[in-house]
Design a protein around this nucleic acid. Sequence first.
DNA 1: AATGAATGAGGTTTCATTCAT
DNA 2: TATGAATGAAACCTCATTCAT
Lengths: 191, 191, 191, 191
Amino acid sequence: MPKIVDVEQQRKEILFKCFDLFAEKGYANVTTRQLCQEIGISTGALYHYFSSKKILFEQLVDEISRQDALLLKEVVGNTLEERIRTLGQLLIQHEEHFLKQAIVWINFYQHNDLQEIQVNPIFQQVDDRYQQSMSDLLEIEEPKIARFIWTLINGVLIEQVGNAKISFADQIDLLTQMLIAYFAQNKTAIH
Amino acid sequence: MPKIVDVEQQRKEILFKCFDLFAEKGYANVTTRQLCQEIGISTGALYHYFSSKKILFEQLVDEISRQDALLLKEVVGNTLEERIRTLGQLLIQHEEHFLKQAIVWINFYQHNDLQEIQVNPIFQQVDDRYQQSMSDLLEIEEPKIARFIWTLINGVLIEQVGNAKISFADQIDLLTQMLIAYFAQNKTAIH
Amino acid sequence: MPKIVDVEQQRKEILFKCFDLFAEKGYANVTTRQLCQEIGISTGALYHYFSSKKILFEQLVDEISRQDALLLKEVVGNTLEERIRTLGQLLIQHEEHFLKQAIVWINFYQHNDLQEIQVNPIFQQVDDRYQQSMSDLLEIEEPKIARFIWTLINGVLIEQVGNAKISFADQIDLLTQMLIAYFAQNKTAIH
Amino acid sequence: MPKIVDVEQQRKEILFKCFDLFAEKGYANVTTRQLCQEIGISTGALYHYFSSKKILFEQLVDEISRQDALLLKEVVGNTLEERIRTLGQLLIQHEEHFLKQAIVWINFYQHNDLQEIQVNPIFQQVDDRYQQSMSDLLEIEEPKIARFIWTLINGVLIEQVGNAKISFADQIDLLTQMLIAYFAQNKTAIH
DNA sequence: AATGAATGAGGTTTCATTCAT
DNA sequence: TATGAATGAAACCTCATTCAT
């Protein structure tokens, strides 16, 4: 028998440690050596789990999006307005996490050639997962609207990344109000 | 004496050619060699005009933001609603340009260490310029709101980058409606 | 006690599977991991049987040369000419095997530092074995001649490796004729 | 104007220095770092001239084969027998060079996947060049025969590489005799 | 005897930048 | 001014081998 290691567990732990590093410095600015050093494994071990830095990164994005989907499931509420407010609170509560997610997501855009990204199945899958989460939690059937809301949230997140002029909470509050105002005027879109 | 004009002219032409390249492939994925080859100058010449790739990039972002400020000045209208609609039309009309601007802006985020960016004077300056443009054209005095709108626009732009699931025009339309709904409910913010 | 047989058996089976792999891709282009995967054993097991990739390789070359010696013993004939023709037929009959042997032999040359190979006892032993085979089967006492013939055969084999411009059979036929012509003129060398 | 360098000249000088190194240690056993150090250039410079180690190697093989073709042009003689003897003398005279060529040629076989080599245009070109040289200098019209002779010569060269049991001169002498004996019996093949 | 996760030195290659001309 | 050959640190990755289990 080999060394007793829960491979899947180890894989995820590496991923989570990378999440922090990539979010802090950016994918391109973290070398595999640094990665290994900070994680506390050898380069060989890293490549034992992930066949390339790029693959590791894709699996990271995938993993995080799954986590996010679970997190977002916590949003509940009887009315759309309530659910929007709860979503806002959730985002603020997990500000750090969602900020990191946004950075990593942007890194993902950047690293792949922009033509390449559109045919990347991981990208599509993750992208759909976020849209689905929004549809589910807000109970919005119109996919355009669900996607649009996630677009706006991402905009706010990205704005925060390099920029502390307005607090995240303030921007999310504004967004919440705006969404509520919009849906108040467009009852047909509401369930 | 007249040479100075040529130098400045040449500098800007290089910048504009780089704009396209960076927008297409991303800052990190374009080497100086490629850059020079596409532009049609030698590496030596490039370094004559710009002391480093990073400096070139910063000047590019600066230059584009100045252009954008001019473009955005074209937005006029008697009421806030009218101005918002005109802004939407302007963005759709210059879709390609604003998309490229968004990509380059994201590249800027990415390239700099995230701590570093907050102390980068060019970044601050450009960032303020966009906020100012929004304040001016929409005639919104509350800087938070002005900045917030630009944040949302950037969110929509970035969403478009690697992703053609909803057309830019559709997303901008939604944003326009949302903003109008919001301001209709918050008259105090309007002039 | 009976285990010893199994071990030896297993050792040889590994060797034969490696023969195919090395012949197909070349020693340097097959990693131990690939080797183990194709063979269906773990790296640990491989290192249980062979203390290094190099040792495995040497033992492979040794094993194959023993096999070849047995194969070549089948050549018989009353006259030198007859024996030469029979040798030619044997080579053509076992074309694939001898081709693989030639590739592996070349790999052996390549892998060792060229100075190192001359002091490698396995190399010397195998080399002598082929020479001896030629001496025996053709009943040529002059070692120079025996060795020379094997040299030419190897030349033909190697030529075949990456190159299908002339069929192996054609080249062996030519060689056969040439040898017969030569010995017809040099009766003293014949028995 | 750039540093004044005869690029083509420099390219060839690098190639010739590599020839010695590869012949001495084998392609796989020379690292690019070693290569650069021995040549006296930086890794960057090497990659300025050759886009990869493999490409460098292919161009080396190509260049050497061109050289060889020129060398082999020196063989002249009124009869086929005379030309064969002169060829033998030339080979012995340039023993070191042809040995190195043989090593490099074998390295070339080894480095490429064996399937790959058959579609490598450089390989085909070089291969044909040697065959053409043999056709030309011996004035043999039958391509099979010309190729076959080069095959045998290569066999002798390769035998020499790791193996000093018979001198090169002796083996070449034997080959010369054998060829003469063969052609004496097959007048139709002679011009 | 067997497993396969882990090691880490070292390989090839890249690329912003410099500098002789 | 302009050229492009040259630099070299550092990037990603490989792979024979080890060793805890």
